[in-house]
Amino acid sequence: MANYTTFLALLFCLFLVAATEIQMAEGKYCWKKSDMWNEPCQYSYKCSYHCKHYYGAKYGICKNYKPWGHKYYWAKYACYCYSPCHY
């Protein structure tokens, strides 16, 4: 019984690794800073909606950005849009 359980556990781990590799092979995402976002990025869900609506991107997130003259921590984040790369 222990050998059967070990075999199933190893098979499950192999399946997880294979599934991860398949997802990674589907395609890479390229990012672009949103030019139309005119405020500090505080919430990624708002950024994601903005990117989907205006750029047709897959999703958007708030990423660290180095603006000059902002003293608030949330002002250091900008909206970046991610979409599949076109080569």
Rank of each mutant, 00 (worst) to 15 (best):
M1A: 14
A2D: 11
N3K: 15
N3Q: 12
Y4D: 14
Y4R: 15
T5N: 07
T5R: 15
T5Y: 13
T6I: 15
T6S: 15
T6L: 15
T6K: 15
F7N: 01
F7A: 15
L8V: 09
L8W: 06
L8F: 10
A9T: 15
A9S: 12
L10M: 10
L10C: 14
L10W: 10
L11C: 11
L11S: 13
L11V: 09
F12D: 02
F12N: 10
C13P: 01
C13W: 09
C13N: 04
L14P: 00
L14V: 09
L14N: 11
L14F: 12
L16S: 03
V17W: 07
V17H: 06
A18Q: 12
A19L: 07
E21A: 15
I22W: 02
I22Y: 01
I22F: 06
I22H: 10
M24N: 10
M24S: 12
A25C: 04
A25S: 14
A25Y: 01
E26G: 00
G27D: 02
K28T: 10
K28W: 01
Y29G: 00
Y29T: 01
C30M: 06
W31L: 05
W31I: 04
K32A: 08
K32S: 13
K33L: 10
K33V: 07
K33P: 01
K33C: 04
D35M: 08
D35R: 13
M36H: 01
M36V: 10
W37G: 01
W37Y: 05
W37H: 05
W37C: 00
W37T: 05
E39W: 02
E39G: 02
P40L: 07
C41T: 03
Q42P: 01
S44N: 06
S44K: 07
K46W: 13
K46H: 14
K46Q: 14
S48M: 05
Y49R: 07
H50V: 01
H50I: 06
C51A: 07
C51L: 03
C51Q: 02
H53A: 10
Y54I: 08
Y54Q: 08
Y55H: 06
Y55D: 03
Y55F: 06
G56L: 05
A57F: 02
A57Y: 02
K58F: 07
K58D: 13
K58A: 14
Y59C: 05
Y59R: 05
I61Y: 09
I61E: 15
I61T: 06
C62K: 01
C62L: 06
C62H: 02
N64P: 06
Y65T: 08
Y65Q: 02
Y65W: 15
Y65E: 00
K66Y: 07
K66M: 02
P67A: 09
P67R: 11
W68M: 12
W68Y: 13
W68F: 15
W68D: 09
G69M: 09
G69R: 07
H70Y: 14
H70M: 13
K71T: 14
K71C: 03
K71L: 11
Y72H: 14
Y72G: 05
Y73H: 09
Y73F: 14
Y73N: 09
W74T: 10
W74M: 07
Y77H: 12
C79V: 04
Y80T: 00
Y80G: 02
C81W: 03
C81Y: 00
C81M: 03
C81R: 03
S83T: 11
S83Q: 04
S83P: 00
S83G: 08
S83N: 09
S83H: 08
P84F: 01
C85E: 03
H86S: 12
Y87H: 13
Y87S: 10
